[in-house]
Nucleic acid binder design. Structure first.
Lengths: 152, 152
DNA sequence: CTGATATCATTTGCATACGAATGAATTTGC
DNA sequence: GCAAATTCATTCGTATGCAAATGATATCAG
C-alpha cells in the first residue's frame, strides 16, 4: 500500500523516523476546529461572516477607531481589514470619515443600523459559541479557552 | 467613549444584556491561534503551505487516492483540494493519472520529488508543532490536542 | 435497455488572509 | 526647517475556503 512503515514499536527505520500523523499536529486540528465553528456560525448567521461580526463587536466596544487601528484590535492586517470594512460600509453597517487632524486616517464607527444588527445578533453569537463547545463539559470549555488564549 | 455599559456586577441594563467580549468567544481565539501557527509555519517552511503539506503527508500515508477522496482525508471540499493539487502538480510534487476503470476520477500520488520534499521537511514540521505549543506545559499540550479533536 | 440519480471534477463568485510594493501625509533627526 | 524615516491606507499577487452551478461519466431502477 504505502511506502511508509507501519511503525511497529521499537522497530522503526531509524530514531528520527517518528511516524508523522496529521492528527497529532496542532495546525491540522486547529484548521478542523475552525472549520466546524465556521459551519455553525454561517448556519445561524448567514448574512455576516465571523470577521465582519468581530469588526462590529469591537467597534461597539471602542466607539470608533482608524481602519488599521481597528484591524490591530481584531488581529487583521491592513490589507484584510480594508476588505472587511469596505463590505460593511457598502451595507451601511459602519460609517467612515477622514480624520480631521491626520488626513491619512479613516475613522470608522458603527452606524445606527450596525448597532441594531449587533443587538439583533448578540444572543445568536453566544449560542454559536455554546454550540461549538457543546461536545465539551463546562470544565473542558474553560480549559480550552484558556489554552487557546495562551498560544494565540 | 463607548455606548456600551461597563458591565458593573449585577448592574447590567438587563439580564439578556450580558457583555459581549470577543476574547471569550471560541471563533475569535481559534482564529488567533491559527494565525500564530501559520506565522510559525511559514517562517520555517516558506515554500509550502500547511494545506499543501497536509496533502503530501496524507498521500504518503495512503499511497494514492482520487482527488476528492484525498480532499475528504484532509477535510477539504472539492473546489479547495483542486487548487492545492494543481499547485503541487505544477511543482512536480505529485503525479496525476486518470483512473483506468472510472474515467471521472483523477488518481493522485506522490512523485519521487514529493517524497524527498516530505522527508526533508518532516522534522521541521514536528518543530513547528513544538514551537506553536511552546507556551504550554506537556500536560496542557495533551489537553489542548484532545479538546480540539473533540470539537473538530 | 434506458431514463433518473448519483458521483467526480471543474468553474465561478465571494470572502478572508498575508507579503510586498506604492503613494500620501506626518513625524523625527539633525 | 527640511531631508529621512515612519505611518496609514491602498493595490497587487497568491492561496485557501465554501456554495452553487455545470459537464462528464457511472450506476441504478424498472
Amino acid at each position: 500500500m504505502s511506502v511508509e512503515a507501519k511503525a511497529a514499536p521499537f522497530a522503526g527505520p531509524a530514531a528520527a523516523e517518528k511516524a508523522y500523523r496529521l492528527e497529532e499536529h496542532i495546525g491540522f486540528v486547529l484548521r478542523k476546529a475552525n472549520q466546524r465553528h465556521l459551519a455553525l456560525f454561517s448556519a445561524r448567521i448567514s448574512d455576516l461572516t465571523p470577521p465582519q461580526f468581530a469588526a462590529l463587536a469591537r467597534l461597539e466596544e471602542v466607539g470608533e477607531a482608524s481602519q488599521n487601528q481597528l484591524g490591530g484590535l481584531i488581529a487583521m492586517d491592513a490589507a484584510t481589514i480594508k476588505g472587511v470594512i469596505d463590505r460593511l460600509k457598502a451595507r451601511g453597517l459602519v460609517e467612515i470619515d477622514t480624520h480631521k487632524e491626520d488626513r491619512r486616517r479613516l475613522v470608522v464607527r458603527l452606524s445606527a443600523e450596525g448597532r441594531d444588527t449587533l443587538a439583533r445578533l448578540r444572543l445568536l453569537a453566544f449560542a454559536i459559541t455554546e454550540e461549538t463547545l457543546a461536545p465539551l463539559t463546562g470544565r473542558e470549555r474553560a480549559s480550552l479557552m484558556r489554552l487557546l488564549a495562551k498560544i494565540g
